[in-house]
Amino acid sequence: MRHNKPYRYLVHLAVCMALILLYCYPQLKGGWASPFSLKWTVVRFILFGFINFHLFYLLVFGLLQKPVQHKQYGKAILYTLAAIIVFSGIKYAAGYFFFPDQVLLRGIPFIGRPKIYMTFLQYLPETLKTGLAVALLAYGYRLLLQWRNTAPQDRLLATAAAQAGARYERMQEGSRQLLHYLQQLTPVLENEQTREKQGTKAILLLSDLLRYMLYDKALEKDKVSFKKELLNYERYLALRRICHPQQLLTLQVTGEDSNNMIEALRLQDITERSLQELAGVIGEIVISVHVMEDSVALSVTPVPAAVSISPNKIKLYPEYA
């Protein structure tokens, strides 16, 4: 960011001086005939506007930056007052050494009378008013910059927190399903006839599903590849066939070959809820996954179907989303 500082300074200076020139243009236009009036306008508007700009710039990008970020309002007020007094001294010095008649003159003297100039203490209240106005403008602009700079960070933090919460919920759901599968596998593992063949296969499937649900880097994001999700969905169905042999689960995948993304574990969650509602059903259950361009239609239907079941629509997302 260091290389941007000169550019930032020049842009702010150009905008500020353009506004000052626009404001004092009528006085400049009318003062060409009077050298004193022209000099007074140049000194009091243009020169002092240039000095006030540096007070504004120093406060915004220097003295107020850290106090505003850390909400140290006492330090911000102290720095502001010190800067105003220092710049009041600069203005007084400019008037004392170069432009006394335009800055420090106390009224128009009578002919033959000496000119009376203000001391620093007499001049200070006048310049404090201008300094406080510049300080208020600088403080407001600093708050605007602070809000603009921190708003994207706050959104990123909120997004990261939401993603972390979603990952936690998925891990919690995965842990719950793991315990559920282990309970269902207990009869298979306790039976010597099914332990060697079906039990070994079930443990391998459960291990693959656990690795996918809890440790796969693809699930660090909300959406995963549909092909990867479908692969692990088939493993989930294979495990469920072993745990519930009375239900013959048949998977039918139709439609397009999609490279889109899908919400992680969405197919599995919908199917698990549907099968729990059909816990008393014995026999064949057809699980149909119809892939369309921007969505997937998932239906769980016992055979023969007692009632018409509407398919669940799951949205697909482009690969770059």
Rank of each mutant, 00 (worst) to 15 (best):
I314Y: 11
V281G: 03
Y96N: 09
Y9K: 04
H70Q: 11
W32V: 15
I90S: 11
S88K: 02
A33P: 01
H54A: 06
A18L: 11
L231T: 13
L144M: 06
V11L: 13
P6A: 04
R44H: 10
T80P: 04
G255E: 07
K39Q: 13
E256F: 10
I270C: 05
L64G: 12
R241W: 03
G74F: 02
V300F: 07
Q247H: 06
K71V: 07
A83K: 12
H3T: 12
T271G: 03
H54Q: 09
G95W: 07
T186I: 11
T194E: 00
I287S: 00
I262L: 03
Y181E: 10
E256H: 08
T150V: 01
A93E: 03
Q122N: 08
N191M: 01
L251S: 09
M1W: 15
F226L: 11
A94I: 13
V291L: 01
N4F: 06
R142S: 14
A135G: 05
A321E: 01
F50K: 02
Y233I: 09
Q163L: 15
I285C: 01
G112F: 10
L265A: 14
Q198R: 00
M1K: 13
G62T: 07
Y117E: 03
P100L: 03
I108G: 05
L137Q: 09
E190H: 11
Y25V: 04
L128K: 00
A305M: 02
C16A: 15
D101K: 09
Q69A: 14
P67D: 03
L179F: 10
V296M: 04
L219E: 01
E272W: 03
P67K: 05
V103P: 05
S34A: 09
L38G: 01
A151S: 06
I287R: 00
R148S: 08
Q268T: 14
L104V: 05
W147I: 08
S310L: 05
Y57F: 12
G174Y: 13
V60I: 08
V303M: 10
G283Y: 13
H54L: 05
H244W: 15
Q153F: 00
K115S: 12
V103D: 03
P245N: 14
E169S: 09
E190A: 07
P152H: 00
G174E: 15
A33C: 05
Q183A: 15
L55Y: 13
H290V: 06
F36D: 13
L143P: 05
E169N: 10
I90P: 12
R167S: 04
K66Q: 08
M17K: 08
I116W: 02
V15F: 03
F98W: 11
G107D: 06
K315G: 08
V134H: 10
G199A: 01
V86F: 14
S288I: 12
Q72R: 12
A218W: 06
I314S: 04
E169T: 11
C243N: 10
L189W: 04
G131V: 04
H3P: 11
H290W: 05
F36G: 15
M118N: 09
Q153T: 00
D216L: 02
I20T: 12
L59N: 04
Q146I: 03
V42F: 07
R211T: 07
A82V: 08
S274C: 02
L19C: 12
I46K: 04
L78F: 07
V15G: 13
F120D: 13
P109R: 02
